[in-house]
Amino acid sequence: MRNDTPILVKKITALSLITILMVGFFWAFTEMPKGSSVNVNNRVSRLYILKNVKAATKSLNSGNFFAKGMKPLRSDVPYSPITFGKSANLEDGAANVVTSIVVDYRGFDTLGEVTVLFLAATGVAMLFFGKRKKNIIKAQASLIMSVGTRIAYAVILLFGIYIFVHGHLTPGGGFPGGAVIASGVLGLFLGNDHYESNHLGLKLFESLSGMAFVIIGLTGLFSVNSFLANFLPTGVIGDLYSAGFIALIYIAIGMKVGAELSAVVDSMIVDTEEEWS
């Protein structure tokens, strides 16, 4: 839209745009399936929900998958509903379906995602590289802030750890847990004047957790013959100690993302002398 367009035309255009967006969103919400009436019978996602991808792939290879009418997806296996606390030794014992896809079936993608985040954090650190200035205090944080953020940091750290340890049971996982921990560190920086984080320790921690991820993957390679394969027993669905290696990988990812984002916050918020111009 050009500069000399009359303002009335601009306003009418903006208003009609808003109206179209509103109507579209409203329509999308009316078309949204109700939670109980989703028909998973004809979808591939049912394979993931039933946690038996191997058998389904076998039937896919034999040509039974897209049968006429597609009614029973897998007629060879009787349909057995999964109940929490009872079903044991499934192919993937995570109660959270998203986690079982993200970490188990598509674990390699997650490795790439973590690598992208690592590159981003390294780029930020490179951008703000330099000798650290002595902090000149602009606005002194009050006593309430400095004590309160320190108390809140403990609770926030605990909550972040809860999110990524329970990643295979409840919604959440390594990335949100790490982000929550990093926001706690941000609070520490804002509330305390002379707070200095251990930058080297953060980097070391992050690299070690990244290595732990790859080492878990390599263990799968050597014991089950495929990279990032589940090599631990899956246990009873819904238990804390279940789902094999998913909890281990999510702990590694959570620590890595938390350390990484904390390092990003640290290098953003601390003033440095520029080494080059």
Binding site: A139, S142, I144, M145, G148, T149, I151, A152, V155
Partner: peptide, 20 residues
């Protein structure tokens, strides 16, 4: 408990910043 802990702190910070 978490709300009782954090809500007064954040409101204190906002009030102080606005006065400043």
């Amino acid at each position: 408990v978490f709300l009782l802990m954090t809500n007064p702190i954040s409101s204190h910070a906002i009030a102080r910043a606005s006065y400043r």
